[in-house]
Design a binder for these strands. Structure first.
Lengths: 352, 352
DNA sequence: GTGAAAGCGCTAACAA
DNA sequence: TTGTTAGCGCTTTCAC
């Protein structure tokens, strides 16, 4: 086995001492070189890098973390990894994090507070440098744990009164108002809303924004046209069924998220209704899939990239520069309407 | 601030020494208690747990890893997290891992060997206890690095000649043969195949299995009906377009994965063709979404749960019990046909 | 059963 | 500029 690693006792990975020995310098010099800490001469630097390459040395992050107190690990806790919105968010977050030399730890709570507690514990044990809590729910009590662990935290739609906490505000209003204007412009006056579970802040905010947009459009709000669903595809199917059972159903439906809207598409098809000719449907999120439903979904885009970027920035600046007084504590991510094929003028015949 | 943590100097998290002091025992006893190592009397055990609870103590995993050499961290490298198959796989893998007290590190290579190399390096630095490589591609050279790092590894569809390596074999053949039998049973004789990128082992295996299934059915293979796509939805759209340009197109199309099949559904709709009346479509994977396409997709199921379970088992047994001679080195995950709405008898009129 | 003490591999003071 | 050394928080011999 003519491998470079055969020089040392087999089975043992090279450590900083091995590198120091090979480069004939002290371990401090190796450490400095690896970390780019200033005072190292080019001559030694070169010798060290050569030894590192030769031995195939990789620094042990655990040892590093132990002494430096920084793990370069970031946690992200999402509500439900089954909803495509979240993998997309995680992916953006990971890309940014890895580009900055961080690793990420992912957890999905499935909206279960007990699971959230476990997640928080796991993050604390692994000494993450920050946690992004993207659950959009009722989380205050458990989060306490993280905050008291002294770890930077960033939340979506939730303010925590702690210097280590930041908040990302989601401006659903802009997108939802645009959607309603789009619909009324098309001639719709009967507009329903399939809401998310009321246990989520975001769901309530979205519903409220819908109500105010309807009011702003001068439309009366039909109470039974606002139905609480659960942000899943199945929930959307069920919600639409409920709406259909009503004597008069709306000609357009706005949904609290895309999965719900896709459920409506599905249920409408099963009921023999054509979208958008017989029924207009609007989603919210603009998951990747939305462009490929049949018909392509008109939806309110909530950029995962922006959200991930804001979350990372909040954590990163807090971790790097905790004292900075000018550190941003609040971030705003906006929404916008994407018009595709699931909306059209209402049928000419009066709706029943 | 009447918090339990106020007893110690603020700002500092309780460590094992603090617990030992509070329980009036040595740190060794605390360690033994936490780890469930045998010789600790119930009396002391109780005192220790009480102190732990009281101080809200969490062991530092990095310190633990440093001394024990085990990180309880498992890596999973996937080909493309954008394909819903992979988030679903990751999720299963995570569930199993967390249930066993492991944490996971996720990486997506996007089929780029350079990224794979980076991933491998990241995993090595974090001292993972094992890596599941679910890229289904050409990876031998880089993987060397992991193997030489002495870390257990499990690959999909790829055998590595190393005692630390295991393999998961995918039995596509069963499912694909079942699909062809289903199609011929329906009356189809003109069957096309939209393959995956030839850079992936799995894509080639799937294509070969298709060819042999066609032969087994006694059908002639139309060469131009086998088209290389790229396992994406867009690729499926393009592949179908190509097929449609042919004078005579097949009455049924089997796709190398579900995303491709969904692309075909989409493209067929755009072309004014009805599925399954005018065209039958079969996918492969059975991603969660497949049940909700319009129409629901008939597909060959490749269980993510089984795959994840096999991957975890391979890594876990190898990590826990490396010497065991009876350790399984090969795992088999099978496939099966799920008949839904995208397949039906071919149109009565002869295909052009 | 329990405790004292020796490190795991590394960074950061402090000296030189 | 470089080297020496003292831990980071924990597990694990080894004595008691």
């Amino acid at each position: 086995m003519p491998r470079r690693s055969s020089r040392k006792a087999a089975g043992k990975l090279p450590d900083i001492r091995a590198v120091a020995a090979a480069a004939r310098v002290s371990i401090a010099t190796v450490s400095r070189t690896v970390n780019g800490s200033p005072p190292v001469s080019d001559r030694l630097k070169k010798r060290v890098w050569q030894a590192i390459k030769q031995l195939n040395y990789l620094p042990n992050t655990h040892a590093r973390t132990l002494v430096s107190g920084r793990s370069r690990l970031l946690g992200i806790i999402v509500e439900n990894i089954t909803n495509p919105f979240f993998p997309e968010l995680i992916r953006s977050f990971e890309e940014i994090a890895v580009a900055h030399g961080y690793e990420i730890l992912v957890s999905s709570t499935n909206s279960d507070p007990a699971v959230l507690a476990t997640c928080a514990r796991r993050m604390l044990e692994r000494k993450v440098d920050g946690v992004a809590v993207m659950t959009f729910g009722e989380e205050e009590p458990v989060l306490d744990q993280i905050v008291h662990g002294g770890i930077p935290i960033v939340l979506a739609e939730f303010k925590l009164d702690d210097p280590k906490a930041s908040t990302i505000l989601l401006d659903y209003s802009t997108g939802i108002h645009a959607a309603i204007r789009h619909l009324t412009g098309l001639g719709h006056r009967a507009i329903g809303f399939l809401a998310g579970p009321h246990s989520l802040h975001s769901a309530i905010t979205r519903e409220n924004d819908f109500r105010s947009a309807i009011a702003a459009a001068g439309l009366p709000l039909q109470k039974k046209w606002v139905i609480e669903c659960d942000h899943t595809l199945k929930g959307g199917v069920a919600g639409f069924e409920q709406l259909r059972k009503l004597g008069n159903r709306p000609t357009a439906i706005v949904c609290s998220n895309d999965m719900t809207a896709i459920g409506v598409l599905r249920a409408a098809y099963a009921a023999g209704l054509r979208v958008p000719e017989d029924l207009s449907v609007v989603g919210l999120d603009d998951i990747d899939f939305a462009a490929y439903t049949l018909p392509p979904l008109t939806t309110i885009r909530l950029s995962r990239v922006e959200l991930a970027r804001a979350a990372f920035e909040a954590l990163h600046t807090q971790a790097e520069d905790p004292e900075s007084p000018k550190r941003k504590r609040e971030f705003l991510v906006s929404t916008s309407l994407v018009v595709r094929g699931s909306t059209a003028p209402p049928p000419a015949t009066h709706p029943s």
